[in-house]
Design a protein around this nucleic acid. Sequence first.
DNA 1: AACATTTATCGTATATTTGCGATGAACAAT
DNA 2: ATTGTTCATCGCAAATATACGATAAATGTT
Lengths: 113, 113
Amino acid sequence: MNNRDNMSHQSSIDYKEEEKLLARFAKAMGHPARIAILKFLAKESDCFCGVIVDELPIAQATVSQHLKELKDAGLIQGNIEPPKVRYCIDPENWKKAKELFEEFLRMQILVNC
Amino acid sequence: MNNRDNMSHQSSIDYKEEEKLLARFAKAMGHPARIAILKFLAKESDCFCGVIVDELPIAQATVSQHLKELKDAGLIQGNIEPPKVRYCIDPENWKKAKELFEEFLRMQILVNC
DNA sequence: AACATTTATCGTATATTTGCGATGAACAAT
DNA sequence: ATTGTTCATCGCAAATATACGATAAATGTT
């Protein structure tokens, strides 16, 4: 699994922390449902799970799973207000993601073919 | 599979084309190896597959697979220069991705919890 | 023609993701 | 205490992703 164990090729380097973090954010954004959720959360101040379920063409259990993934990636957070859960963007990590993406996308592209 | 077949919940809407495209780009960027490849391709004008293999801690077959995914997502293109293949960023789709991400990341965030 | 180089593809194994219905947990209201 | 609401989690199935070695395909070199 880890390439430190198998040096049959030039695996001199590992991925940089920045690359791993950017990939983690990107992966979390890599599903239309999760893009839609993020857009909805950004726009709405009322952000209970049930409202999101009504917005999406998938079942409640699936929405919950997507919310979990966004939470694991750090992009959103949820506050319990029984019996509901109020979700919102995690402002700090959103800022970090924004910076990483913008730096990445701003890089100068050389095209040779 | 398709939710049009099972209207047991309010699946009124489908994802928007923009959301699907953004998710597609994000998914392609959702692995550290592919972030590293994109960075390398942006920086280098010599972008043969073999050079990339030397840069990454994974086997040639795996690099080729990642290149294929980036190509399928439209982010890169490859020109054959036998016996090599010269890879580079696809400038047009890169621009599109850039626009979509920047619009998405620029959106105003409401945080209520 | 035989060989070397480069990259894609195949076959395979394993892990992760996506999706659902069913159920459980937490709490408010009755 | 029972009931209703909301959301998470479990258990499962199917699909997709990740990784590798082996091999094929393409073409230049000898």
